[in-house]
Write a protein that binds this DNA or RNA. Structure first.
Length: 571
RNA sequence: GCGCCAGUAGCUCAGUUGGAUAGAGCAGCGGCCUUCUAAGCCGCGGGUCAGGGGUUCGAUUCCCUUCUGGCGCGCCA
């Protein structure tokens, strides 16, 4: 919608400049906004207000100049732009222009602009350690990352979705020790899991289930025959704890990752790539990154450790990348990983992290700068943790206690659509209260149904129309000028802002804007539906309304697809 | 103590790179189905945009400050 008007306004400014009426040193931003009050027109621009200072003229005078140079050869506007208030330019659309807006929606992808132009973006998200099932917080990150990826995809970016597997380091060691203890327990041993191990029930189930397979794998690694009774199995596990732990760690990480993948799939989230930390280390990626930093002089030794000079790029303090005991830090691995991302030729890197890691942003950004990347090629989207409540009572979560409501439980309870919708109803960096009782209800309080219902209603109208032999008119021949009722006008306007909304959401990487738009569009449709009948005796009017309803259906389906939610034909 | 994010209606939250009279959902009250799906629609009430100062034609939006909440500040991951 904005796009349609931008050209005209730009031309007026150019003419004014050529005629010497305006100086226009730089390209002024053409800011359009939808006026709150319909009496101010359909679209307003504040460009005259913005130019006041640089032109050293009164906003009203500038507005006058712009209007004087304004030409509308195609009759897109209902009248010449009005000047109002301090210098607003108010534009009122002609039915001709509204029609074009609706026709635009018929193009591929609803006519959304190609703002990406094929730029390659890597979106890394979830990346949960394979040490347990996903919890609700992971789910929010998964849905946000996936939503951003879908948005970028729809706006012409070449998107890759990636999951980084932390399958090396301490957490995996802890998992290995915990899994081994559970395996021994499964054979009847009375041993405890380690002090700060993973106490969750899922590991008990997993290792009980995998008792024979895990033990056989350990035996195979040791070159011995698989034990058949509990006594010899325990004998094997006790006499070779290191090998047993390693195998237990590998096996459980493998199976837990498979479970994570399955949990994401249940939420309609799928990755293009999985990158293993261990694999990166084995390939020498981390070492290469550190050597590069060494060569370029960003590393130094102090107190027996090696530090990265992250303060050179705005971090609060320098960070250790190799401890005095020779062990590389987690940060070192992350530097390697991000350098490897750059080496794959992406134009931009997006990481979705839990907000509790925000202190980490500056150092990774610093590392990327040190490796030669521009500052704006890396962006972190932070997701606040989810506060889960049930019956008003907060549900305690956390791997420490081993008791938490898993993402899978929530999805099984309320469905993928509602779960995604709830997660995307809030801005990523604001806290989210997820009321399970509310989400389970599947009643009118649950807004996802409100939007889906609008879509299903339109499908129902289509079926009815078909039954009565009323066909969809071609866009050009539809009598859209007959759609003059207030609810019809409101619906047309809502539809016309769709592409603007999507483009804005993509630019800001904020899928929640699409969700809010869909709720508003659904509201506009429901009001229209209640006010006017689509199928009437008046053939021409019926077809025009049918065309309008179909436009709404197309946008609803597209928008729901953008946030990964189904568009049901019946409910 | 320092840093990041937040504070908007009873509750949960939007608020379009600073714009015109600050919005939605839920909760509360009252209406609307012989007609395309009532999981819907219409109406009513509800605010010191946490407080204070500054920047300017104009501030919920930007800057400073105070208060409150969450998180982060390790040779942990």
């Amino acid at each position: 919608m904005r796009q349609r008007l931008e050209g005209l306004l730009q031309q007026a400014l150019t003419r004014a400049k050529e005629g010497g009426a305006l100086k226009l040193d730089g390209l002024p931003p053409l800011i359009f906004e939808i006026p709150r009050d319909a009496s101010f027109g359909d679209l307003a621009s504040t460009v005259a207000l913005g130019l006041a200072r640089s032109e050293r003229k009164k906003p009203l005078d500038i507005a006058r100049i712009i209007v004087d140079h304004f030409e509308d050869a195609e009759g897109l506007l209902a009248n010449t732009p009005e000047i109002a208030g301090a210098g607003f330019l108010n534009f009122r659309f002609s039915s001709n222009l509204w029609k074009r807006c609706l026709i635009d929606l018929e193009r591929d992808g609803c006519g959304i602009a190609d703002i990406g132009r094929g730029r390659r973006i890597l979106v890394e998200f979830v990346s949960a350690n394979p040490t347990g099932p996903l919890h609700v917080g992971h789910g929010r990150g998964a849905v946000l990352g996936d939503g951003v990826a879908r948005l970028l995809d729809a706006t012409g970016f070449d998107v890759t979705r990636e999951y980084y597997i932390n399958d090396a380091g301490k957490q995996i060691d802890t998992l290995a020790a915990s899994a081994l203890a559970r395996l021994r327990q499964a054979w009847g041993d009375t041993c405890d899991i380690p002090e700060d191990g993973y106490p969750g029930e899922y590991l008990v189930e997993l290792m009980t289930e995998q008792r024979a397979a895990a033990t056989a794998r350990i035996a195979a690694a040791l070159g011995s025959t698989p034990p058949t009774d509990a006594a010899s199995a325990l004998e094997l596990l006790r006499s070779h704890p290191a090998v047993a732990a390693r195998i237990c760690g590998e096996l459980s990480a493998e199976l837990l990752l498979a479970r994570i993948v399955d949990d994401m799939k249940a939420l309609a989230v799928e990755m293009d790539l999985f990158v293993s930390e261990r694999d990166l280390r084995d390939r020498g990626v981390v070492g290469a990154a550190l050597r590069e930093l060494e060569t370029t002089g960003f590393l130094y030794e102090s107190d027996g450790a090696r530090w990265f000079r992250s303060t050179d790029f705005g971090d609060e303090k320098d960070r250790v990348i190799q401890r005095s005991d020779g062990e590389l830090t987690y940060f070192a691995a992350d530097i390697g990983y991000h350098r490897e991302k750059l080496s794959r030729g992406f134009d931009e890197l997006i990481d979705v992290w839990g907000a509790d890691h925000h202190g980490y942003v500056a150092r990774v950004a610093a590392a990327l700068r040190a490796l030669g990347s521009e500052a704006d090629r890396f962006r972190v989207l932070l997701v606040q943790l989810v506060r889960l409540t049930r019956g008003g009572e907060p549900v305690r979560m956390g791997k420490r206690s081993g008791e938490f409501v898993t993402l899978r439980e929530v999805v099984d309870e309320v469905g993928a659509d509602a779960t995604r919708f709830f997660f995307l109803m809030r801005k990523g960096d604001s806290q989210l209260d997820f009321d399970l009782d509310l989400a389970v209800k599947q009643s009118s309080e649950n807004p996802v149904f409100y939007v889906q219902y609008a879509h299903a209603r339109i499908c129902s109208i289509s079926r009815q129309a078909q039954k009565e032999g009323i066909g969809m008119p071609a866009a050009e021949s539809a009598a859209l000028h007959r759609l003059t009722a207030a609810t019809e006008q409101e619906l047309i306007k809502a539809l016309a802002t769709y592409t603007d909304t999507v483009e804005e959401a993509a630019r800001e990487r904020e899928p929640h804007r699409v969700v809010f738009y869909l709720m508003e569009l659904a509201g506009s449709f429901h009001r229209f539906y209640n006010q006017e009948r689509v199928i009437t005796e008046d053939r021409e009017l019926s077809e025009a309304r049918l065309y309008l309803a179909h436009s709404a259906q197309r946008v609803l389906r597209h928008g729901l697809g953008l946030v990964g939610i189904g568009a049901p034909e019946t409910m």
